[in-house]
Design a protein around this nucleic acid. Structure first.
Lengths: 228, 228
DNA sequence: AAACAATATGGCACGCTGTGCCATATGACA
DNA sequence: TGTCATATGGCACAGCGTGCCATATTGTTT
């Protein structure tokens, strides 16, 4: 037995340990979101969360690096799923098409799956994030990280070097910008359902198309008076 | 004397109080940045900052709402100046032109003015922000707030209702996205000087123009299989 | 100049977050 | 059952941010 590696398969197994961990993790998220929705994010302490799940405070920090992460865990799962969904799109599909279809499929999955936060839970979490500057900041940071992963994925699909070619990053960042604008309007309008958000994304994208047609990009962009 | 208002003019005066406050504020920023650059953001405590300026810890929190804000104060000033610069552009100028020229003018001002953080200080602060997840998150949140102000300013210039028309928000958010991509490349390349950043912004914008010409936006975006 | 009002500062106590450390409990496996 | 790996609990501690009140400093009035 000169093998120093652990004898138990560390990941992915269906052992009792793994299942238990998954359950406590979900319980922590559920309890935290419930408290956040009821009392507000700032008014909720970690002690209250762990008391609801009957877990020590120290254990909480073994599952989540901080209070923000438990609030954003659902949204982060969705973002990771989005990157995976783009990777699963057929190879020939142009970047924006793959992004749009992947977004639609992930949103449909969220709406359908009651497990990973139903449509209603998604909306409430969205409101929670936008109501708290701290959560908003963390959310934007995660979105930026996802943008990088997504740009790398687009670069891989298109067979270009992401370090030299700006196009993947520009495509992803602008696509996200449009989605974000649509989301703002969506939540301001009451965030009725996912269908409404889809329509708003399409509307926003169409509006940008109209802007481009009117010379939005090139108009007046010639090298006239380069330095104010 | 039934007047309940304060007898001293509260704001903008050149009184001793105002000058003193401004001096301590600047001293706090300088001391904080110096420590952040030397020891790193997380490793420096607020106690060290206030010790360098010989001010109580409690006073620090009367000048800045938190540790992040003192690190981002310079960047925030630049962003507010950018909104002002757009407002100062001639009325007839199209949105993107006004944004581009205003950006150039603010960057020139930063490079020239040794007071509000010279070009070198700007680069070092930029690196500091990008090295710290917390600062990055707060910076993105401030950028989002500035985006809203900027969109309102563009809407005012164009005479449209910002609540109903998506175009101002889309224009601003995409412009910022392009600038951000250029900035990433800039800092990764060593962030030599402001001139280099200007070229990168132009290059990024030109790249986006090329993408649009190749049907980046409309290509494949017709209503085919709308929901995955 | 002197008294007074307005405000800035200092100091203290307190709660909350996040982390290192070690003892203990629990599941995994031969 | 015995042994190992790992998950958990329970401290202690440092840092951040805030409320509160006493004190000091500045500006105004008489």
């Amino acid at each position: 037995m000169e093998n120093g590696a652990p004898r138990t398969t560390p990941g992915s197994g269906t052992g009792l340990r793994e299942r238990k961990k998954e359950r406590t993790r979900e319980a922590l998220i559920d309890a935290a979101l419930e408290l956040f929705w009821r009392k507000g994010y700032d008014a909720t302490t970690i002690d209250e969360i762990v008391a609801a799940v009957d877990v020590s405070r120290r254990t909480f920090f073994r599952y989540f690096p901080g209070k923000e992460e438990v609030a954003l865990s659902r949204a982060n799962e969705a973002e990771r799923a989005l990157v995976g969904a783009v990777a699963d799109r057929p190879a020939g599909e142009p970047p924006v098409v793959a992004l749009r279809r992947a977004t639609a499929s992930v949103m449909a999955a969220i709406t359908a799956d009651p497990e990973l936060g139903s449509s209603e839970a998604y909306v409430r979490t969205r409101r929670l994030i936008e109501a708290n500057p701290t959560l908003m900041a963390a959310s934007l940071r995660h979105a930026l990280e996802t943008e990088r992963l997504m740009a790398a994925e687009i670069a891989r699909r298109e067979g270009v070097d992401p370090a030299r070619d700006l196009r993947p990053a520009l495509t992803v960042t602008c696509f996200n910008a449009v989605v974000r604008v649509a989301m703002e309007v969506w939540t301001d309008d009451g965030a009725v359902d996912a269908q409404g958000l889809e329509s708003l994304i399409d509307e926003a994208w169409a509006t940008m198309g109209g802007l481009v047609d009117q010379g939005w990009l090139s108009g007046g962009w010639e090298p006239d008076a380069p330095h104010g």
